[in-house]
Computed example of a mutant assay.
Amino acid sequence: MKYTTLPNTDIKVSKICLGTMTFGQQNTEAEGHAQMDYALEKGVNFFDTAEMYSIPSKKETYGSTEKIIGTWFKKTGRREEVVLASKIAGPNPNFGYMRDKLDFSPASIKFALDQSLQRLQTDYLDIYQLHWPERKTNCFGQRGFKVQDDAWEDNFHEVLETMDSLIKAGKIKHIGVSNENPWGVMRLLEESKYNNLPRIKTIQNPYSLLNRLFENASAEVCIRENVGLLAYSPLAFGVLSGKFLTGESHPNARLSLFPQYSRYSSAKSAEATKLYQEVAHKHGLTLTQLALAFVENQPFVTSSIIGATTMDQLKENIATIDVVLSQEIIKEINSIQAIIPDPAP
């Protein structure tokens, strides 16, 4: 395994992070435990979850992923070997079953964190992330910012003050954001810089061969401000494994079970995927190796979040840490990006 440190900390994390959002629906508790056993055995010391998991989130399975991680901690006693990240959900009218109010008020943050810690059977989180902004921006499936009245009032200072109190209480060590844009990141950094408040260390956004929008502006913020990207969906819901190009049926695949997640299902995505597969095979690689190695080796990526529903998938994903892409391969990847830029917003 390869390691780096969380920006502006002394915490060592694996360049591959175990994503757990399938635990509780696509994966049973026993399967989740087996994945965590194997990942840690292979040097993956970084696990990511969220209060709303498993996905798709619904009342019956809300919090199930954190519970499964919690029972694994209790069974194994290996909490101190894991760098653990979770998230608080922002406003969404469909998730009212989580809390009375989905916002980032002090009361909501403290309540959500306490509930997560209870489910996870731990006293602290290494990283606590805002899952998406309170502002109506950077929404899943929406390309770019759209001007609209969202009745949002700037509360970055209050949010950071709340996080500061939780850090001082020992409940969290560091903070991060997810599904955020450059303006939100810079506003948070500005508040922390001028008011001696906690600084965000990470941003968790989608990034893959099919979605390189992060490079447009956010990558520069990460490099210049030393904020690490935790790249999620590096295989684009499994599309970049190439399995959907075969014409075979995959009834247990995420996109088959949950067709509402159509972000990577466009004709352009399929066309780009086929071209990337040709590059991979030309150089003696699988498409999975090409796709994950591309993300893992970007200078602004702290860790790439992989998710798997089978042990074979998990083993293949973790093994990609040893793949190094030549400049010739990168040039060929970029030529495809130039022809079909970011088919999945």
Results as ranks from 00 to 15, higher is better:
Gln260Ser: 13
Ile200Gly: 07
Ser249Met: 15
Ser262Trp: 06
Cys222Val: 01
Gly228Ser: 14
Pro259Arg: 05
Asn297Cys: 14
Pro259Asp: 08
Val185Cys: 09
Ala253Ile: 02
Ser208Asn: 12
Leu287Gly: 03
Ala217Arg: 15
Leu285Arg: 11
Gln313Thr: 02
Asn211Lys: 10
Tyr276Gly: 03
Thr286Asn: 10
Ser269Pro: 07
Leu188Cys: 11
Tyr207Glu: 01
Phe300Ser: 03
Thr302Leu: 06
Pro259Gly: 05
Leu290Asp: 00
Thr309Tyr: 08
Ala236Tyr: 04
Asp322Phe: 10
Leu229Tyr: 06
Arg263Asp: 09
Arg224Cys: 14
Gln204Trp: 00
Tyr264Ser: 02
Gly238His: 01
Tyr261Pro: 03
Gln277Trp: 10
Leu189Val: 07
Leu290Tyr: 12
Asn216Ser: 15
Glu191Met: 14
Pro234Ser: 09
Phe214Trp: 04
Ser266Glu: 02
Phe258Gln: 02
Glu278Cys: 04
Ser262Leu: 09
Ser304Ile: 07
Val279Ser: 04
Gly228Asn: 09
Asn205Ala: 10
Ser218Lys: 03
Gly307Cys: 04
Ser178Ile: 12
Ser178Gln: 06
Glu215Leu: 12
Thr246Pro: 01
Gly176Trp: 03
Ser262Asp: 13
Ser218Leu: 15
Glu190Lys: 15
Phe237Cys: 12
Gly228Trp: 12
Asn181Trp: 11
Ala217Asp: 15
Gln260Arg: 14
Gln289Val: 06
Leu213Phe: 14
Val227Gly: 07
Leu257Ser: 04
Asn195Ile: 15
Leu275Gly: 04
Pro259His: 04
Ile318Tyr: 00
Met186Ile: 10
Pro182Val: 08
